[in-house]
Amino acid sequence: MKDKSKALLTSENIIFVVLLLLGLVLPTFTNAYRLSQYSYYYSMTILALSITLVWGYAGIFSFGQAAFMGLGAYIYGILSIAAGRDGFNIFALLIAVVIMMALGAALAYFMFYGGVNDVFVGLITMCFGIALQTFMGQTAGEEWQVLGVRLGGYNGLTGIPKISLFGFKLGDVAFYFFTFIILILVYAAIRYSKITNAGYSLTAIRENRSRSELFGFDVPKIQVIVFAISTGLAALAGVLYSVWGSYIAPDNLSMTQSTIPVVIVASGGRKNPTATVLFAILYYFLSGKLAASGSSLNYIILGAILIVVLLFIPEGLFSTLFSKMDKYILRRA
């Protein structure tokens, strides 16, 4: 019993609990504007977590995560605008996630049962993303309507409604908690999954596909499942993002937008969801501050940080920080 509680007392867990508490009390000492910024950071963190799952855990390199996110947001936007009833929006969210999971599964089936792997998965998802973005960009005309909702081309879909729960429309604070709780749930599920059998099979696939296959794992099937879940998470992030900004546009599906979460996961610590969460929030916070400063050095500073982190801290900034702290502060190997 004592051993077990000691095993839980890692710097990763301590930092996480501190953050959890901070997140819970944040609304008491900040204004509505900053709170809504955090809702945005949290939804993008969920996107990053979807990559931790698919890349960090299962070793599948997806470069189309922003496209899945954007498509999820489009589906939510179309359904909720077409329905025009606040009460329906939470179902629109669920439908968007389910549709995207099905689509993710279909794409994954196409890839993994065809023996496509490694960097080629990244390339297929990248092409899928660019094709989707190019397509959505040219839907400005009147003929591009789904359920009577104009897709809006490059300017995107505007006026996406907020989510209501139990007849109560989620305003700034409520929406903050909504995204916060979803983020914590997703995070917990991903961390927990690591110590389940499913998690072990993911690790097995990541480390050595052919050996896992020889041990009797149905590798493509597991890959399809994890890819579909990750696509669903990306769509969830997209829905939250579109609710936050009441807006989604082809720009959000771009190659750059797909690269950013990959970069976050790689720099924070690929195999560690806590590190991803920390780095994602810091990244969006920092990039917002740099933009607000009006300096044109924005991209240069971000680029330099990424290079420095990956060159000198290859395991990721926070992953390494956790293990160093465990070693030197908590005196544990």
Binding site: V119, V262, V263, S296, L297
Partner: peptide, 17 residues
């Protein structure tokens, strides 16, 4: 190789800006 994607992306940001 996968980290190189991230790092070269960082380089591209710095070069163009």
């Amino acid at each position: 190789p996968l980290d190189s994607i991230v790092v070269t992306w960082g380089i591209s940001l710095i070069l163009s800006q």
